[in-house]
Every structure is written in structure tokens, then in C-alpha cells.
Simulated scan of single mutants.
Amino acid sequence: MKCPSAQPGMGDVQILGVISRDADEPRLAYLDEAMPAAPETLELAAPLNVSQVFRLSARCEEKKCTHFDGSHCQLAVRIARMLPEVVDHLPACNIRPDCRWFRQEGRAACVRCPQIMTGMNEADELWQAVAGVPRLQR
């Protein structure tokens, strides 16, 4: 299984796509083919963080990941239930056959996937909830 929202240090990391900022909201422009996330390629993101330029996929780390509950990716569950659809057709994704989110949530995850930005620094309350960030008690 592959995680479509991976970090650079994970196993079998590939570039899933490039973050496009041509529209009002950032969107993922999927690559036609998987591309290894070689250090020299990821360095092209500088001075920005890698996650502001690229979205990575990698081998799902299952029990090592805070989103995995032992059988399901709860991030995929929250994405499918909490976010609006942003496309009306399945994106041209090169990992779909092995994607944890697609295998688990199907079309509901795919039509929301292009808006996912890994490691958002300026996340509002909805995005924090989707990411699983605990709410602070006031």
C-alpha cells in the first residue's frame, strides 16, 4: 500500500505531483509517472519546504503512523467525510492501484485528494481537524 501524503524520510518515497498555485486555492498537479524523490530533486523546492512544492507518496507505514488505527487510515476517513469534493472525476493518479486512501475510501478520497497539502503551516480549524490535530481546551 502507498500513502499519498508522505514525508521525505519514509520508505520508497516518490513524487506524486507538484503543487500548482495557479487557481484561488493550491491544487495538486499529478505526475503522469512515478518519479523517485531523489535528494537533488527535493532540493529544487528551496527556499520553500518540500511539502510546499511537491506532494510525495511512499510505502504506508501503518502502525508507525499516528493516522493508522490498526486497520484503517483515519486521515483518509476524515478527508472523505469532512472535506468538499474539488473535482468531479477521478484524477489521473499514478499510485491509485496501490493507494491506501483509494483502497479504503474509494472515489470519496480521490475527488478530495487534489486539495490535500501535506504539512500545512497555516491550517484553519477545519484543516486542523482533518489532520487530526488535537483541539486546545480554552
Rank of each mutant, 00 (worst) to 15 (best):
Pro39Val: 08
Asn121Asp: 13
Lys63Ser: 13
Val111Pro: 04
Ala37Leu: 02
Gln14Asn: 12
Tyr30Met: 13
Glu62Gly: 04
Ser51Pro: 06
Met35Val: 13
Leu44Trp: 06
Lys2Phe: 06
Ala123Gly: 08
Asp98Ala: 14
Glu62Ser: 05
Pro39Gln: 11
Leu16Pro: 00
Arg103Asp: 08
Asp98Gly: 07
Leu16His: 01
Pro26Asp: 06
Ile19Thr: 11
Ala45Leu: 05
Gln104Arg: 09
Ala58Cys: 12
Val86Ile: 04
Ile95Leu: 13
Tyr30Ile: 11
Ser57Asp: 08
Pro47Glu: 07
Tyr30Thr: 05
Arg112Pro: 02
Arg81Gly: 10
Val53His: 03
Asp12Trp: 05
Arg96Leu: 15
Pro97Gln: 14
Cys113Ile: 03
Gly132Trp: 09
Asp32Glu: 15
Phe68Thr: 02
Ala108Phe: 03
Leu90Thr: 14
Asp32Cys: 08
Met1Leu: 09
Ala129Leu: 12
Gln14Leu: 10
Phe54Cys: 00
Glu33Arg: 12
Ile95Phe: 10
Leu136Asn: 11
Ala129Asn: 11
Trp127Tyr: 14
Gln104Ala: 06
Val133Asp: 11
Leu31Val: 07
Ala34Val: 13
Arg55Cys: 03
Ile19Gly: 04
Pro97Met: 15
Asn94Pro: 08
Gln52Asp: 14
Lys2Val: 04
His89Leu: 09
Leu56Lys: 01
Pro26Leu: 07
Arg78Trp: 06
Leu16Arg: 00
Phe54Ala: 01
Ile19Ala: 04
Met35Glu: 04
Cys110Ser: 03
Glu25Gly: 05
Ala76Arg: 00
Leu126Thr: 08
Ala131Lys: 08
Pro47Gln: 06
Gln52Leu: 06
Val50Ser: 00
Leu42Asn: 02
Ala58Tyr: 00
Glu43Ile: 07
Lys64Glu: 11
Arg135Lys: 15
Pro36Phe: 06
Ala108Tyr: 03
Val87Thr: 15
Pro97Leu: 13
Val18Leu: 13
His89Ser: 14
Lys64Thr: 08
Ser20His: 07
Asn94Ser: 15
Leu83His: 03
Val13Gly: 00
Ala129Met: 11
Val87Glu: 07
Glu122Leu: 12
